[in-house]
């Protein structure tokens, strides 16, 4: 599976990074499982190197973030080490009160929210074969929002009909999310728990869809985190992850501009070296038995003050994958 995916991934990454090769299939985003045209020969050695590196669990060229698993894969729920970074948890607790202030420190998330949700809506509608014209297309689906913060993603998911569980490691966030959701009957049923993905895995909880947006760049161990997300997803369920690319453009816009010039984010919100490239994310997810189906980028239009989906994944991007059934995950090890 991994060998089959990697060439198409490489191809699509190359496609999306060079503007001249704009013929990306789909409305937006990069379908990753349909390689389409054959791969140019010049790329073959590279991807072979990459995929063999990955399957032998020695770190490939992208240096730090995907800390490679040593030895056999950890059994789901067997880990006692949390993937959370205590310093990151403290950082978010300090600004938790302001979660629902659309002009406050979480302004970028508020602005981006409709765009993230339209990706989630359309991929989940396709995945679960739901009617996109329904006002509650996610009715009856169990969805977990990992790293829910003040609940700005959980609430819209609940309005779309999903049975939502929101978890966050910061107790203050959970309190805020709970109080805020309680003031609207359509969101009052959301279950907010102060816990971590790892702990829920130990309780053998599973969900039809697992969503974790703008979280993986803050965790100490991305692979362990993805394995937990995978363990929380039912076989053939959906996983959606969004994060920031580790590119020069991301450094310039998401860190320098957003944190230092525009003051959109508190300084130090993102640490560049902890960011993942889309390629790394796909490899990590692949190892956690999630096969990425589609990716899309978010681009910001400063004139309209709005975000939109695009195939440019050089800064903010989102990925949707399917949790493979057990057989496939054995194969990838």
């Amino acid at each position: 599976m991994l060998r089959r995916l990697t060439p198409s991934l490489r191809r699509s990454l190359l496609t999306s990074s060079s503007p001249s090769a704009a013929a990306v299939p789909g409305r937006w985003g990069v379908p990753l499982t349909e390689p389409g045209a054959s791969l140019p020969h010049t790329l073959l050695p590279q991807w072979r190197l990459c995929s063999s590196a990955a399957s032998h669990s020695s770190p490939p060229t992208p240096p730090r973030p995907p800390s490679p698993p040593q030895g056999p894969k950890r059994p789901a729920g067997g880990s006692t080490v949390s993937s959370l970074n205590p310093a990151e948890v403290a950082k978010f607790a300090a600004i938790a009160e302001t979660w629902w202030d659309s002009e406050g420190p979480f302004k970028p998330l508020h602005l981006m929210n409709p765009t993230r949700l339209s990706f989630i809506r359309s991929t989940l509608c396709r995945h679960f074969r739901r009617d996109p014209n329904s006002s509650k297309p996610l009715e009856g689906l169990k969805v977990i929002d990992v790293g829910c913060g003040g609940g700005i993603l959980s609430e819209p998911l609940a309005r779309m009909g999903a049975t939502v569980t929101g978890i966050d490691a910061v107790d203050k966030n959970i309190k805020i999310a709970h109080v805020h959701a309680a003031s609207d009957p359509s969101t009052a049923s959301i279950e907010y728990i102060c816990t971590t993905a790892e702990d829920l895995v130990k309780e053998h909880k599973q969900f039809d869809a697992v969503i974790s947006l703008e979280v993986i760049e803050h965790v100490a161990n991305p692979l362990g985190f993805c394995e937990s997300l995978s363990a929380l997803t039912v076989p053939n369920g959906a996983t959606v992850i969004s994060t920031i690319n580790r590119s020069m453009r991301a450094y310039a816009t998401a860190i320098v501009a957003a944190e230092y010039i525009l003051n959109w984010l508190p300084k130090g919100t993102h640490n560049w070296s902890k960011l993942l490239t889309p390629e790394e994310l796909v490899l990590i997810l692949e190892r956690a038995s999630i096969s990425v189906q589609e990716m899309a980028g978010f681009v910001y239009n400063p004139l309209r003050g709005e975000w939109s989906l695009s195939d440019d994944i050089s800064v903010n991007y989102i990925a949707y994958g399917i949790k493979k059934v057990e057989k496939a995950s054995v194969e990838s090890n």
Binding site: W100, D101, S102, G104, K175, V179, A182, D184, P185, A188
Partner: peptide, 23 residues
């Protein structure tokens, strides 16, 4: 200020109907 819900708001004996209407 739906944006500043404090934990007192829930503990101060609001019924859920009142809470919904206040918004």
């Amino acid at each position: 200020s739906r944006q500043v819900p404090t934990s007192e708001a829930t503990s101060s004996g609001y019924t859920s109907g009142e809470l919904h209407r206040s918004n």
